[in-house]
Amino acid sequence: MSTACTISGLSFRYQNAKTPALDSFSLEIPKGSSMALLGPNGAGKSTLMDIMLRWKTPTDGTITLFGHPLQSYRRKEMGRLVALVPQDENSNFAFSALDYVLFGRAPYLGDIAQPRQEDIDIALDSLRQVGLSSFAERPVTSLSGGEHQLLLLARAIAQRPRLMLLDEPTSALDPANTAKVLAILARLHDQGMTLFFTTHDPSMAAETATHVAMLKDGRLLSSGTMQKTMTAESLSELYDTPMATLSHDSKLFVYRTASDS
């Protein structure tokens, strides 16, 4: 399998920080994979995503995206290749849900262009894919937390990206909405999109992802396919707390075995 994204020797240090947020981090994201990025709080997950979006510039290291250096893409091309589903995002203005999803069409439109009928059709289709069709003309300020997360997902889908970055896509959702989001991610994966998401929930990662990467103190601890990488040993080391795994019904469950304190 060829790679969607190759990260090598990536380092990043925040101003006035004693230790780097990322320290010679290297990772290959296979094309068409669904990769979960696991790591404790402050491990550098968000920083890594920001660098992959070119929102932050690394101190050192290179990223190759679909065969070309990340820097070689123009801004609009980046928006067509990589979409972001942020963790929380609020609007102070009561746009309609359809207007909001249309924003995902920005990389396909000129600076002073207006959305075309084609863009409106794509946005409506994206809303349909996340089950929000009937919400098209509802103001986004009236949506629930779960509906809002689905809306952000729809916007990313409307971007028609090849790589989708998701920041904690289910951490704020109840089980029903989590199931909805995971089903949508599974469908996108089946359609061939490469998914890369952060999560604090190893069981959710095991349920959804084909691959996993473990990030600790800015370094890559281990990465690879789910079965090979998601072991009790690596998880215990990652979170500095005893963890165990359990296979049941061809599903992998992860749980804490004991606590030090």
């Binding site: 979006l53 929102w55 942020p86 995002e89 609007s91 924003f103 920005a106 600076d111 207006q114 959305p115």
Partner: peptide, 27 residues
């Protein structure tokens, strides 16, 4: 007036505007 649609996108946070291919600071 020419920038009126883009203005919508710029009202989102900068990281999001950046992720849909804009250069929010410049715009």
């Amino acid at each position: 007036v020419a920038y009126r649609w883009r203005l919508n996108v710029l009202s989102l946070n900068d990281r999001t505007a950046h992720s849909v291919g804009l250069s929010p600071n410049r715009d």
